[in-house]
Amino acid sequence: MIVALAGGTLPPDDVVVAALRTGDEAAFAALLDAWSRGMLRLARAYVSTDDSAQEVVQDAWLAVVEGIDGFEGRSSLKTWVHRILINTAKKRGVRENRAIPWSSAFERRGEPSDGSSRPSRSPGEDGVPPGPWKDFSALWPTPEDEALASEVRGQIATALAGLPDRQRIVITLRDVEGCTSEEVCEILDISAANQRVLLHRARAWVRGRIEVYFETVGRPA
């Protein structure tokens, strides 16, 4: 029985897996709620619409339901579920002509295409999380009012959207979803060095875009 879910932390894998095998609906619901948002964000990197992403995540979870009895615990449950998701998303992406060649991930494909021409989207009206903005405001103008904080989030979203797919997937898994480098290597089946190169290029690009943004808005008109 899954109980300790306060604060969003899941019990250890063996507990969760045992609960799923016995048909514990609360356990399954907890897992759906814990991972689906991240999975949707990831799926969205492979397919072209939000509806397709919903379908990909749905099909991945159905495969998890079918396959849970065969889960051998050679990787973590999270890695296993995300690998199923990536495989499902890839198949779907191929149908949509959005195949991502991971095997050639080492090739230099130049810097990301310029995402600055895209209009920035306003990401909503959530409160400003104090932690990250505290570090941020030591370096760039303080996003003290929600309008600027929201504008910066919009700039970051735009910068992410301007990245090549593989870089966006890696930075999404690592920095947005908080996966470890080991998890990302396992999920995407790439080497640690390759993961680091992709992550570094992606971070450098986002940092550069934010720098450019503040150079632009910082100057009096």
Binding site: V176, R207, I210
Partner: peptide
């Protein structure tokens, strides 16, 4: 870099399922 990583980790999450 650290600041950007911090803000990336605190992006508002997408709509769920």
């Amino acid at each position: 870099f650290r600041a950007v990583i911090g803000v990336l980790g605190a992006l508002p999450s997408e709509d769920g399922l």
